[in-house]
Amino acid sequence: MESMQHHEQHVQLCFDCAAACERCATACLREDHVMMMRECIRLCRDCADFCRMCGSLTARDSAFMMPFMVLCADVCDACADECSQHDHEHCRACAEACRRCADDCRRLSATA
């Protein structure tokens, strides 16, 4: 039962992270110096896709969810590292969401 609860929490963390990444990418597109935000936007979009897939795989208890969590954590780390370089509230919020998701991905994948 505890494992199922952790999986449900992980699904929510994944979708929350995807939403934070989407908000960040959208806000970055509105920045005055949008060309300086290209890598942030690219990584946010990649991360949002990975997090949605990870959440979906976890929700359906896929046999592939654990190895995908490892990859998702790496993408979340890359996105968090990039977002941390920018002094925008949306980037800070995205970096925090990415770190939470990456930590949870690693924690769950280590229990497999």
Rank of each mutant, 00 (worst) to 15 (best):
L43R: 06
R99C: 05
D49Q: 09
C98A: 11
C17W: 01
A19Q: 13
Q12D: 10
L29I: 08
M53L: 15
G55N: 09
C24Q: 09
Q85Y: 02
A97T: 00
M37G: 11
D81L: 12
A78H: 06
M66E: 14
A93N: 14
L57S: 02
C91R: 02
L108V: 00
R60G: 01
F64W: 13
M66W: 14
D46C: 11
E82C: 10
S109M: 00
C17M: 07
Q9M: 12
V34M: 07
A19P: 12
H7C: 08
C14F: 01
C28V: 06
S109F: 00
A102V: 03
D32N: 15
E82K: 07
M1Q: 11
A102M: 02
V75T: 08
A78M: 11
D103F: 03
A48I: 01
A18G: 06
H33Y: 13
C14M: 10
C40R: 04
P67K: 04
M37E: 07
C44E: 10
C51P: 03
C47F: 04
C91Y: 01
M65P: 04
C79W: 00
F15G: 01
T111A: 15
H6F: 14
D74G: 09
R30A: 14
A95L: 03
C54I: 03
R38Q: 11
R100I: 00
C47R: 00
A97L: 08
D46T: 04
C94Q: 00
G55A: 10
M53Y: 13
E96T: 11
C76T: 02
E31L: 04
C44Y: 00
M65H: 15
C79V: 06
G55I: 06
E31Q: 12
A80P: 00
L29V: 08
A19Y: 12
F50L: 09
L13A: 14
R92Q: 13
E8L: 12
F68N: 03
M53K: 14
A80F: 01
M4I: 15
C76V: 01
D61M: 15
C72N: 08
M36R: 12
H7I: 08
C51V: 05
M69S: 09
H90T: 01
M65T: 09
D32V: 13
T58I: 09
M37H: 09
R99G: 06
S3N: 11
A97V: 01
L29C: 11
H6L: 13
P67E: 05
E31V: 07
C21Y: 04
M35Y: 06
G55H: 07
D32I: 07
C14D: 04
A18H: 05
V75Y: 00
S56N: 15
L13D: 04
